[in-house]
């Protein structure tokens, strides 16, 4: 009986250590990233076991015609068209799938109001391949995002 308890506890410890390592690997996604177009910065956070990303900076923060902060005017849901783009959550529901990949998420493109299936691959510590696709990964486009940091003191 004691052997059974011992092996169960050892297994539990191994699972625990593995979970911690896995979680540490998964949390490398957390940070501020810049898409290739350079028009926005996206901060990725973890909520529960999933990862989410929201716009924290916009190159053109205000509507040039009205001078007001830019809103999500292309959203197919009319009730959301006055939501400010800064702070808007465009990456949703990513879970770490192992081997530097986060999957099962979606990405929203405020340029056209479309939401795509999305997977994220970390090609190195500071680079993400963000692949938005329709149905199957083959019907998609990959954008490369780069990690940002606070400015170094001079």
């Amino acid at each position: 009986m004691k052997k059974v308890i011992l092996s169960a506890l050892v297994s539990l410890m191994l699972v625990s250590v593995s979970y911690a390592q896995n979680s540490e690997e998964a949390n490398r996604l957390i940070g501020v990233w810049e898409p290739s177009h350079g028009k926005a910065k996206v901060k990725i956070d973890k909520i529960g076991d999933k990862f989410y990303g929201r716009i924290v900076w916009l190159k053109t923060a205000k509507n040039p015609e009205t001078g007001e902060p830019r809103v999500d005017k292309n959203n197919p849901d009319e009730s959301l068209r006055n939501t400010p783009l800064r702070g808007y959550r465009i990456l949703k529901d990513f879970v770490y799938a192992g081997e530097d990949e986060w999957s099962e998420g979606t990405i929203y493109d405020p340029e056209n109001g479309n939401t795509y299936s999305c997977s994220i691959k970390m090609t190195d510590e500071n680079t993400l391949d963000i692949r938005g696709y329709i149905g199957v990964s083959a019907l998609g486009r990959t954008d490369i995002w780069k990690r940002l940091k606070m400015p170094s003191k001079k």
Binding site: V32, K41, E125, T127
Partner: peptide, 26 residues
């Protein structure tokens, strides 16, 4: 604890100006 890391708790009061001058790590 590991499952409840939520780094967006201060979302409402976040000062977005802190992201103005970020630079690339690479």
């Amino acid at each position: 604890l590991m499952a409840q890391v939520d780094s967006t708790q201060a979302e409402e009061e976040e000062d977005f100006s802190m992201y103005d001058n970020l630079e690339f790590v690479d």
